[in-house]
Simulated scan of single mutants.
Amino acid sequence: MSPSTSQSASSTPPSRSNRNHTPESTPPMRKSRRYLFSVIAAVLLGSGITLAAAGPAQAHDDLLGSFPDADSTVAVSPDEITLSFSGELISDMQSAVIEVTAPGGENIATDAPTVSGTTITQHLEPNPPDGAFTVLWRVVSGDGHPISGEYTYTVEPIQSDASTPGAGATEQAPEPSITSAETTTNTGGSEPFGGVALLPILAVLTGVIILGAGFIVVFKVTRERRLRNEEAVDRQEQQDSERTSKDASHEK
């Protein structure tokens, strides 16, 4: 091989395709992958912790019983109704609402309900017509989450026995039952009142935001490292080219 051929071969710069295979570019790419995996693991861990913390917050108070009982029949219309819950209720006037709809469609609740610990009481108008009554209620449990539901009861006087004319048809009002009302619900989004459980939604949005930010950071870091590697390769090529030119000039 002639000297000119040797010089031209040695002065030929490495192709662009070989730059990605240089030893200098491999470690930063591995570091970028490790960084990406670390970000994803941190996001998944943070989302799991947030969802785990949100789970217990969804355990709201339950309706334990009522007077009159759900789906029960009483002989005399009560002067008030009482609801009993499993936990302390928030007692401000705007947090509790009870509507009692008579057979004619009118609301016979006379004033704002009274909250005392785990019990809420609603006074009613006297002497409403007999028939089926619907109770709609909404309260705020101790964790600050609204719960609501509804149930019905019926007022039907007891017919007097023919053998004892004039016998009173009154019946002593029973104590509030401790059994759960069948048609009540304790979900914040139930009708006619409702709230929205925001914690799971916020947890998902937080995870998405963190994940997106992590990908942006990884992309920028990887791009900057790639540019630095290419600049280093270009400088090395330029130095090799200058060195080759100097060697060629000395040989001449």
Rank of each mutant, 00 (worst) to 15 (best):
A203R: 11
P23R: 14
A213P: 05
A169G: 07
D61A: 07
K220Q: 15
I147C: 06
E251T: 08
V135G: 07
T50V: 00
S190V: 04
Q7T: 13
S190K: 00
D69I: 01
V100N: 10
I108F: 11
N127E: 15
S141V: 13
L45D: 05
L44G: 08
T110A: 12
L227P: 00
I210W: 12
M1H: 14
E251R: 08
I108Y: 09
L205V: 15
G188L: 03
E251M: 07
P103E: 11
Q172W: 04
L44D: 05
L64R: 06
Q159M: 06
G142K: 06
S17A: 15
H250R: 09
D234I: 11
P56V: 05
D111Q: 13
A112V: 05
P68S: 06
L36K: 09
S25N: 14
E80R: 10
P192T: 11
T114P: 02
A169C: 05
P78S: 05
H123T: 12
T119V: 13
S66V: 03
D92E: 07
T50E: 00
L211F: 14
Q159R: 09
D62H: 00
S245H: 09
A54I: 02
E251W: 04
I158F: 01
V208H: 11
T152I: 08
E99D: 10
V43H: 00
S77W: 01
K246Y: 06
S8A: 15
R33H: 09
Q238E: 10
V208M: 14
Y153T: 06
P157W: 00
P157R: 10
G65Y: 00
L51A: 05
A132L: 10
A41V: 06
E150R: 08
P129K: 11
R228M: 12
S91K: 11
